[in-house]
């Protein structure tokens, strides 16, 4: 687990260098990494390009190439993400019936558990565990928010912070 979270943290650091909100994510199946990505919202000018959704795209691509049914494949996926998935990502992961989600620090702004518990709206939700290497994940976020989001309009950059 720690090893996978370390990988996710490396990806988050890469996001920070690229001036993106530092969130990194890896997906595993049977203990092997099958997808890894980080936030790329500013690059794509698409506010939904969170690390988790990028990983989902990679898995779908992988399944398509290898003629695997992605719906059954996702049921074996474990998600390691440095920050608690937001409401959007939590709903996406619930839709896909992933097996497990492990996160670093909580997300008090958009968290799919902390702000609104999305699992209440789904019959079978994944196993959710938080607080794995939370300090490391949080310190990356703090470093990012010391600066401002380079793509937001001036007036909003200070008060509104993307995650």
């Amino acid at each position: 687990m720690v090893e996978f979270m370390n990988q996710a943290l490396e990806l988050a650091k890469e996001a920070l260098t690229a001036k993106e909100v530092p969130v990194g994510c890896v997906f595993t199946v049977d203990g092997t990494i099958v997808a890894k990505s980080r936030n790329c919202v500013n690059l794509t000018r698409n506010p939904t390009r969170h690390a988790e959704l990028n990983c989902i795209d990679q898995v779908i691509e992988h399944c398509k190439t290898n003629n695997i049914d992605h719906l059954s494949y996702f049921k074996k996926v474990c998600v390691y993400v440095t920050v608690e998935p937001c409401i959007m990502c939590a709903a996406a992961l619930n839709n896909l019936n992933v097996l497990e989600v492990v996160y670093g620090c909580a997300n008090d702004r958009f968290g799919g558990k902390t702000v609104l518990d999305v699992s209440n709206f789904y019959e079978n939700s994944y196993i959710l565990t938080g607080n794995l290497m939370a300090d490391e994940a949080m310190s990356l976020l703090k470093q990012f928010y010391k600066g401002t989001n380079p793509n937001a309009p001036e007036s909003k950059a200070k008060k509104k912070k993307e995650m």
């Binding site: 794509t44 000018r45 939904t48 959704l53 839709n95």
Partner: peptide
């Protein structure tokens, strides 16, 4: 074909494309 590509998700990406972005 793609479980995340609900219409609103597509729309947001379509708008991103009009702003020289898109995934």
């Amino acid at each position: 074909r793609h479980p995340v590509q609900h219409t609103a998700m597509m729309a947001i990406d379509d708008v991103a494309r009009t702003q020289d972005g898109g995934a």
